[in-house]
Design a protein around this nucleic acid. Structure first.
Lengths: 241, 241
DNA sequence: ACAAAAGTGTTGTCGATACACCCATGG
DNA sequence: CCATGGGTGTATCGACAACACTTTTGT
């Protein structure tokens, strides 16, 4: 195994976590104190990233980063873009940071995103913190843009792939599912029409269980069956074309 | 300007050209003669590629490659994937080739594709040749897979973006447009329904000109107006399968 | 019994599909 | 005049949008 690192290429990971308020992003605090601990020269946030490891695939490198933060084995990594503009890291702050860390100037990065329910991640490291996608803090490098691109890609994929279920707990209610769609796509959906559509899908299977939320009528729970999905979409394809 | 090259990262360009028979790919002959010119050790085909130039963006690097082959200024480059599996170039042949060229082993490549009418490209260099996507020759490296991925991406984009018009001549007939969709998506479409749909689109504007093809009824010509498209479109797809 | 969220049906419209013949031209 | 590809209309069906009230539970 060759654990050397490519010093001019990195991998970045946008980590999405969904909760009942919408999408969140997991960010790492980037802080640099030069003179006085109370007045850091740099104090902003960045997405998780790291150098490419020579003997691993890009995806494996990304998974390592993901695991080091979340403790979880990744299974739903999506590569969405590679950034290579040589002047993309050119702010004073970013250059200062790079020098202070003894890093080479990594202008190229392959960007991935991960999707899971926010609650499934237990943060061990207090440098990391969740932020609602709608109210992100001051971001370093060009990470604002990267997060945006990731969100756009997610919006598209969600219309066409079952990625939404990676963001949901295993058992979920239809209203939770609707909320997930609404907050990711930034639209509002009609509850009755939504239910009709969803209940038509064989791969969304009802359980004989209810979720007793706060103190209201309990709601029925469902699970997503990937087996059924794979079979159904195949046959759909055959019939349609 | 820093014209040095990154010796471990390259850019590859899948060049699509559409003609009336379908999609074609522009490939470069890779030939290596060790002992006897009549019996090359390597004789297969690869897509265009080259090292990343440090002072340029990835896209600019790709455009340079594109221009060096076609003489055209690129305007429709699409980045679709980055490959970084360290063992993706591991066949005897590929390793031999890399040594023979004095190259470093470039395991990472950012892949782009370009789309234009096949006839708009005049080949100056006889190392390059068009091949129908449906009958590709023996391909080097993992370029078979890269071409496949590019095609899949193109299929998706075509449903949602006006990329199809990059593949068409400026003036085109509706039947040509239909053929383009059919051959890219690998489906058949009903001619009457297709016309109805297309004629509803404000951004496909009829000309008072006809195309006198071989020797039959002349057909009406249309152009695509990007201005109108940009204004009209939010979610107005041409095709829904 | 009331507050709060879960759950349920009908109707109208629009777009998609299926389908077969006439038209204009060049040779 | 005929061969060839260009061009056209209608009827049916299904998907989606709009829309408001009843049900179940916990407190």
């Amino acid at each position: 195994m060759d654990f050397r690192k490519r010093d001019n290429v990195s991998v970045d990971c946008v980590i999405f976590g969904l909760d009942s308020y919408g999408l969140n992003i997991l960010l790492r605090n980037r802080k640099l104190n030069m003179f006085n601990d109370d007045f850091p020269v740099i104090d902003d946030w960045v997405i998780a990233g790291g150098p490419v490891i020579i003997s691993k695939t890009l995806g494996e490198t990304a998974d390592l980063i993901f695991k080091s933060i979340t403790g979880l084995n990744a299974f739903n990594r999506i590569q969405f873009h590679t950034y290579g503009n040589p002047s993309r890291l050119k702010s004073e702050k970013d250059l200062l940071w790079i020098r202070s860390q003894g890093l080479k100037r990594q202008t190229m990065t392959i960007a991935y995103y991960y999707t899971q329910p926010k609650e499934s991640i237990v943060l061990k490291n207090s440098d990391f913190k969740w932020f609602p996608l709608k109210s992100l803090p001051d971001l370093g490098f060009d990470h604002k843009r990267i997060i945006n691109d990731a969100h756009e890609d997610l919006k598209q994929k969600i219309m066409v792939d079952p990625v939404i279920f990676d963001l949901m707990p295993v058992k979920f209610t239809l209203n939770e599912l609707q909320l997930a769609f609404e907050s990711i796509l930034e639209v509002e959906l009609d509850n009755r029409n939504f239910r009709k559509k969803v209940l038509n899908k064989a791969y969304i299977v009802p359980l004989n269980q209810t979720k007793k939320g706060s103190a209201k009528k309990p709601s029925k729970l469902y699970v997503f069956s990937r087996d059924v999905y794979d079979k159904v979409t195949e046959t759909d394809y055959i019939i349609n074309i």
